[in-house]
């Protein structure tokens, strides 16, 4: 099974998808329209590119910092959380999802994902 299928099977995951770092492709499953999923993938990709650039700047200040290279990021709202690791994103319903489990699963699954295309 793909990581997106695995994620969607977890409690509280309402949508999940993948995007290409170069920005020309995305795929998704779950409770989003195609257009909304496209917008979500663009926002996730933009933020991923941003935090990777920032991580490189941080590395200059403090070499071998445990934050570099960034693996992903999350934004936590009152009802929903967006969690992104490498080029995989998912949207969580806070009331039903375990954020710790999802982050742990994604970190483990994308641990060896190449980052040379970022």
């Amino acid at each position: 099974m793909s990581i997106v299928t695995d994620l969607l099977a977890k409690p509280g995951v309402i949508a999940a998808g993948e995007y290409a770092y170069r920005g020309d492709r995305f795929s998704y499953r779950g409770a989003l329209t195609e257009e909304h999923a496209r917008m979500a993938s663009i926002m996730c990709r933009a933020t991923t590119m941003g935090v990777n650039m920032e991580g490189k700047m941080l590395e200059v200040f403090q070499p071998r910092s445990g934050l570099q290279p960034p693996r992903g990021w999350m934004v936590h709202g009152a009802d929903y959380t967006v969690c992104v690791m490498a080029n995989v994103f998912c949207m969580l319903d806070n009331a039903r999802a375990s954020i710790n489990d999802i982050v742990g699963f994604m970190r483990q699954t994308v641990a060896n994902a190449p980052s040379d295309l970022i």
Binding site: P69, H76, G77
Partner: peptide, 28 residues
Amino acid sequence: QARGWEKVTAMKGFYPIQEFTLVGFDWS
């Protein structure tokens, strides 16, 4: 982004962002 997303999709519960988390290689 959360503000724009809520306006475009009519999904509520993203804005305002309560926390931002950066997950690094060893630290978050």
